[in-house]
Computed example of a mutant assay.
Amino acid sequence: MSTVQDDRAGQAAREESLVRLAARLTLTLGAPRPAVFWLDLSLSAGLGYLALALACSDVAVWIRLLAGGVSILALYRAESFIHELCHLKSGAVPGFALAWNLAIGIPLLTPSFLYDGVHNLHHARTRYGTAEDPEYLRLAAMSPWTLPVSVIMAGFAPVLLMVRFALLAPVSAIVPPLRRILVERFSALAINPAFRREPPRGPQRRRWLLLESAASAWAIAILAGAIAGLIPLRVVLTGAAVLSGMAVLNQVRTLAAHLWESDGEPLSVTGQYLDSVNVPPPGWLPALWAPVGLRYHALHHLLPGIPYHRLGEAHRRLTSALPPGAGFERADHPGLASALIRLVRAAGGSAA
């Protein structure tokens, strides 16, 4: 066996050892606690909608702005459970997916079918970081201008979602070519413009159509109410501003979630881990901009089956058990600014 083959075999053995050790150390953390899911979602959604109502009311401007900010953070946390829905095993938290769609997914025009069946591809070992990954772009090798442009474009999410559900969805029901385009290109929360989604089949197709129909009816009702003057313009604009703020916040978090340094070839398990970002304590701000376990994004790629509320304990166990030379700590970053600065520098260096 050649030296190169020896090195590859050794690397594969070390990676397999790391994965097995991580799985063994966190063996007791795989079961979600339904009470945590329900309480967290209820408090986040409740606070978010109460703050939104206050932001829409006739009070002092500074109170409306403060309430709008609280609404963005609280509803963003509630909406982030869409990520957990993709990883929850069937029946693990009974009724949670339906409740989330009724409380958050449909009202905010982000029903779970936009992510279910899409995000899972991002975790596939043969897809991560490649052209077939719906949630990956080689941002570190792209123009630095790509970063602010992507954030600005995210701000138009409310308009795009309204067009998608109030206009394109009903029209596509009677125009098959439009339906094909809508399914392939405009039915996934993805950042890779080359990604084309496969049409749903079986039970997934029925769930998709039900959720899409409900979101479409809601979007049409909002649009009709605004045109007829039944919904005050202030309410429409405030709601759109909150949704826009949530989308911008999520895009900024997305930019900080990875190093985006893949060369387009499939990465190993440790390669995926080290290309992703943890922002562990003691900082508390990540709990706001990367809620529901998203602050442990690298660890989530290593152990995707662990529910969000147990990732902190999983990180503590691995940090204590693994020696510094194992490389586990290399995915930890001090905060949002450091992750973004590194990405900007990498993009700037590639453009030079």
Rank of each mutant, 00 (worst) to 15 (best):
F81A: 05
H83Y: 07
H83S: 05
C86F: 02
C86A: 15
L88S: 05
G91Q: 12
P94D: 07
G95R: 07
A97W: 01
L98P: 00
L98S: 04
A99W: 15
N101P: 00
L102K: 01
L102W: 13
I106S: 02
I106T: 11
I106M: 06
I106C: 03
P107F: 14
Y115L: 11
D116Q: 13
L121A: 01
H122G: 01
A124V: 13
R125E: 12
R125Q: 09
R127S: 03
Y128G: 01
D133G: 03
D133H: 03
L137E: 03
L137Y: 01
R138L: 01
L139A: 08
A140I: 08
M142S: 12
W145M: 08
W145S: 03
V149G: 00
S150F: 10
S150D: 07
I152V: 15
A154D: 06
G155Y: 13
F156I: 14
A157K: 04
P158Q: 08
P158W: 11
L160F: 04
M162L: 15
M162G: 05
F165H: 15
A169G: 00
V171T: 09
S172N: 05
V175N: 00
V175D: 03
P177E: 11
L178W: 13
R180V: 12
R180W: 06
I181F: 12
V183I: 15
E184G: 07
